[in-house]
Nucleic acid binder design. Structure first.
Length: 344
DNA sequence: AAGGCGTGGCA
DNA sequence: TTGCCAAGCCT
C-alpha cells in the first residue's frame, strides 16, 4: 500500500467523519443520492436536503414513479437542477434496464445520466468496496499540494495527471475508508485557506509544506470578467397568490417555475396591457441581484396587485401559487427570496 | 475544449 | 461588497 494511503487510513481512524447521514450504510441508492447532491455542494448544505429527499422517496422505485415536478420541488434551493432531472431519469433507467436493482459494475454505473468518473468511483468504493479512484475538489487540492503541482487543477492536462496519481495511490483493500479519508483530510486539514499543516499526517511527505507553497497551491482558476445580464420580472399578486410560469428548456433554471420575465420595461407593460383588463398599478418597483458562476444578473421587479382574475388572459400560460405554497415548489432560490422580500 | 449550469459560506 | 469556489457532469 502506498505511504499516502497508509497514513490517511491511519489518520481517519481517529479523525475522520463517520456520522454523516449517508455513512454507515452500503445501500447504493443512498450513496448515489448523496454523491449527486454533494457535487459542487458543501456537506452542511446537503444534509437537510438528503434527509428530506429520502423521506419522500425511500427507494429507487418510489423515485422513478414520482412526478418530475415533485422531485424538482425537493431540489429547489440546492442548485444545478440537471442533477435532479438526471437522478429521476436514471431511476427510471434502473427500473427498466436493471430490473429496479442498482447496477454493480463501474461500466454500467457511469453510463447512468449525471454520473461521471468521480461519482461512479465513489459509488463503487462506498457501496461495493471496489477499487476505483475519485477526483473531487478535496482530492485535487491534497494531491496538488503533496506533489507540488502549481498549475490550475481544472486544466485538462493537469487533471489527467491527477487521475493517474489518484490511481497509483489507490489501496487494494479498504478503498472505502481510504476514499473517505482523503476527502476528510482535504476538508478538515488540507483546507483551501489556512491548512492545518501542524496536524497533518502527511506534512513530512508534502512538497508544498517543504517549500512553503501552501498559499500558492492550489493555483487559482484563470479569472475572467463575468457578463452582466439585466431583465425585468413581473410579480402579479392576486390576493396573496403569485403568478408563475414554467421556464423553457433552453436556459438557466430549466423546467422550474419562475416569475414572468421580460427583456425590457416596454415588453413588460405591453404584456400587462394585453393580458390584464386595464392598466394596472405598479405598487412597488426595485432591483435585485443574483450572481452565477458564469454571469451576473440584475433583476428589476415590478410588483402589481390585481383584484380579480375575471379578465386575466394568461391563465393557460402559467399557474397561481399561494404564498404559503411557495416554499415546497420548484422555484429557484433568488426568485423565492425576491418574492418573500417584496411580499413581506 | 471550453463554457453552461446554482447556491451559500467565507475571507 | 466582491471574488472565489465547494463530494462535477454534460455538450
Amino acid at each position: 500500500m502506498s505511504l499516502l494511503a497508509k497514513k490517511l487510513i491511519q489518520w481517519h481512524e481517529s479523525h475522520g467523519r463517520k456520522n454523516l447521514p449517508w455513512q454507515k450504510t452500503s445501500d447504493p441508492y443512498h450513496i448515489w443520492l448523496s454523491e449527486v447532491m454533494l457535487q459542487q455542494t458543501q456537506v452542511a448544505t446537503v444534509i437537510p436536503y438528503f434527509k428530506k429527499f429520502l423521506k419522500q422517496f425511500p427507494d429507487i422505485r418510489s423515485l422513478a414513479h414520482a412526478r418530475q415536478d415533485d422531485v424538482m420541488g425537493l431540489w429547489s434551493g440546492l442548485g444545478y437542477y440537471s442533477r435532479a432531472r438526471n437522478l429521476y431519469d436514471a431511476a427510471n433507467i434502473i427500473l427498466t434496464k436493471h430490473k429496479g436493482v442498482f447496477p454493480k459494475t463501474f461500466e454500467e454505473i457511469i453510463q447512468l445520466p449525471g454520473i461521471g468518473r468521480s461519482t461512479a468511483g465513489a459509488i463503487c468504493a462506498f457501496s461495493y468496496k471496489q477499487s476505483y479512484p475519485i477526483l473531487d475538489g478535496n482530492v485535487k487540492r491534497v494531491l496538488c499540494r503533496i506533489f507540488a503541482i502549481k498549475e490550475w487543477a481544472g486544466k485538462p492536462e493537469v487533471e489527467k495527471k491527477l487521475w493517474a496519481i489518484a490511481e497509483e495511490n489507490l489501496p487494494k483493500s479498504d478503498v472505502d475508508i481510504y476514499t473517505q479519508a482523503i476527502m476528510d483530510h482535504g476538508a478538515l486539514i488540507c483546507r483551501r485557506a489556512a491548512p492545518l499543516c501542524h496536524e497533518c499526517p502527511l506534512s513530512k511527505n508534502c512538497k508544498s509544506h517543504d517549500n512553503n507553497w501552501t498559499k500558492e497551491i492550489p493555483a487559482k482558476k484563470p479569472g475572467k470578467i463575468l457578463p452582466l445580464k439585466r431583465l425585468n420580472v413581473l410579480m402579479l399578486d392576486n390576493n396573496k397568490s403569485i403568478f408563475l410560469m414554467k421556464r423553457n428548456e433552453k436556459a438557466v433554471w430549466k423546467g422550474l417555475w419562475s416569475l414572468p420575465e421580460f427583456a425590457n420595461e416596454k415588453a413588460l407593460s405591453d404584456w400587462m396591457l394585453n393580458k390584464l383588463d386595464k392598466k394596472s398599478l405598479v405598487v412597488k418597483k426595485g432591483k435585485s441581484n443574483a450572481n452565477f458562476s458564469h454571469y451576473k444578473l440584475e433583476m428589476t421587479y415590478h410588483y402589481v396587485t390585481i383584484k380579480s382574475l375575471k379578465n386575466f388572459k394568461a391563465m393557460h400560460e402559467g399557474l397561481w401559487l399561494d404564498t404559503n405554497e411557495l416554499q415546497a415548489a420548484a422555484i429557484p432560490s433568488p426568485i423565492k427570496k425576491l418574492i418573500n422580500n417584496v411580499m413581506r
